[in-house]
């Protein structure tokens, strides 16, 4: 490509690139810098170099005898974030894949209707959907009322403010993110292939394992990453459903910039979370790149 055209292309891209540089990349750089400073007494930072922020991600000094130990609280929140995100991904897979399959195998005229139904929650405000699912599990919510009416329980079960509530909320709000990419993969699938393999006396299981699964795999991977990444960084759903006790990484970060008044620790946790997300994305590109290579090979 010759010089002038490269310049023209750069010039056309420049406004978008500049906005993102200024309002997304530069601020992240500042967060990285802040993670190496000293916390101010009442929030903010003092411009004194310190690695305490990073140290406190995993370790803590005992309040009373100053001995150093692993930070149980931070580790449990990190652990909870990962476990809940994995579980959310798995549950949305269990529900999402058959649903996508169901939609893709409807006659084309009906298909649009089902797609429409799955798109509405996808485009509905996240907070509104969180409020809706919260209503289900409150002490006087629908679940408890049904269980009480059936005589299965005598007292309402406490579901709000538990890990279960956070998991349920995230599954509910992220489910459409799983269905859509899996659907896109299945839709491209030529069903005559499966029928052909079946006619060749392949067993049902064989057909499923060797023909269908490989074809929907890219959709499953894409859906998993689309659910896992926002789950890991979730903030709104755990805040509403977890009540400040069943916290995830996003809430822990928020706490450090408010009540906790330890900005460097909050900054270090922010970088940690971003790195975790990037690792998931790199794993995803590896996985899809590997597939393409095999396809070509």
């Amino acid at each position: 490509m010759n010089g002038p055209d490269t310049w023209r292309r750069w010039a056309l891209s420049l406004p978008a690139v500049a906005v993102i540089m200024l309002f997304s990349i530069l601020p992240l750089g500042v967060v990285l810098v802040y993670s190496f400073l000293t916390p101010g007494d009442f929030g903010n930072v003092k411009w004194i170099f310190s690695t305490d922020g990073w140290f406190s991600v995993l370790f803590e000094r005992n309040i009373f005898d100053d001995t150093i130990g692993l930070s149980g609280a931070n580790l449990s929140i990190l652990f909870r974030s990962i476990i809940l995100s994995v579980l959310t991904t798995l549950i949305t897979l269990i529900f999402g894949v058959p649903t996508a399959w169901f939609i893709a195998t409807r006659p084309p005229t009906q298909r649009n209707f089902w797609l429409f139904l799955i798109t509405i929650p996808f485009w509905t405000n996240l907070l509104v959907r969180t409020i809706a699912v919260q209503e289900m599990i409150r002490s006087e919510g629908v679940f408890n009322r049904i269980l009480l009416a059936l005589g299965l329980i005598k007292e309402p079960i406490q579901m709000m403010y538990t890990d279960f509530a956070v998991l349920l909320g995230m599954t509910y709000v992220f489910l459409p993110l799983m269905v859509l990419p899996v659907y896109a993969a299945i839709e491209k699938f030529d069903f005559r292939l499966a029928e052909a393999s079946y006619d060749l006396y392949a067993s049902r299981l064989f057909c499923l394992r060797r023909v269908i699964l490989p074809l929907i795999k890219p959709g499953v991977i894409a859906g998993s990453i689309l659910v896992f990444v926002p789950s890991l960084g979730a903030y709104v759903t755990p805040r509403v459903m977890g009540g400040g006790k069943s916290m995830m990484l996003g809430n822990l970060i928020d706490l450090q910039f408010g009540q906790g008044r330890n900005w460097p620790l909050g900054a270090a946790l922010s970088i940690t979370l971003t790195v975790l997300v990037l690792l998931a994305l790199i794993w995803y590109t590896r996985l899809t790149a590997g597939r393409k290579e095999r396809d070509h090979g």
Binding site: G40, F42, G43, N44, F257, G258, Q259, R261
Partner: peptide
Amino acid sequence: YDSNESALAKIQAG
């Protein structure tokens, strides 16, 4: 705001 501490942190942030 929720608490004196978080209000102070917000004011300190400028």
